[in-house]
Amino acid sequence: MHASNLKYIYLSLLLAFICLLLPWSGLALTIRPDFLLLVTIFWLIRAPNMCNVGTAWFAGLLMDLATGGIFGQFALAYTVTAFFAVRYQRRLVLYSGTQQLVYVIILLLISQITLLILKTFAGAHFIGWAYFAPSITGVLLWRIAVAFGLNTGGRARGA
């Protein structure tokens, strides 16, 4: 499957963004995974020559727009995450399915922690450990996608 096409990358990012725009509320909002970041990480791993830190930055900017917060917060969080995703992308070939999941959850947490630091600087309070729920649901979603045959690279394919 040679889906590493720019068209597919942007289409999937747009779809992920629309998923985020769905009118989530209550518990669903608390545990909603960060679809946009998941798709970005997927492409960072699968097609690093086409999707790089800059793409993640743009995705983050979209998130800033959607959340209505100060511009640049999500952008910075996504940028940092993308850096770590790309930095260790080549080692991913050696990772087993479980190792890859750990890698993904660490990436998701990096994004959330960066955002938490930024928000705390802006005067927000920590809103409880449920804040990190999206990372867990995100990695579950990743596992489900792998189970349904999504090729996430490395030895994890079809696991």
Binding site: G60, G72, A75, T79
Partner: peptide, 15 residues
């Protein structure tokens, strides 16, 4: 790393 520095600086400027 170069990209990280560039885009992080851009984000901070935006913030």
């Amino acid at each position: 790393f170069a990209r990280l520095v560039f885009f992080a600086a851009l984000s901070l400027a935006l913030i």
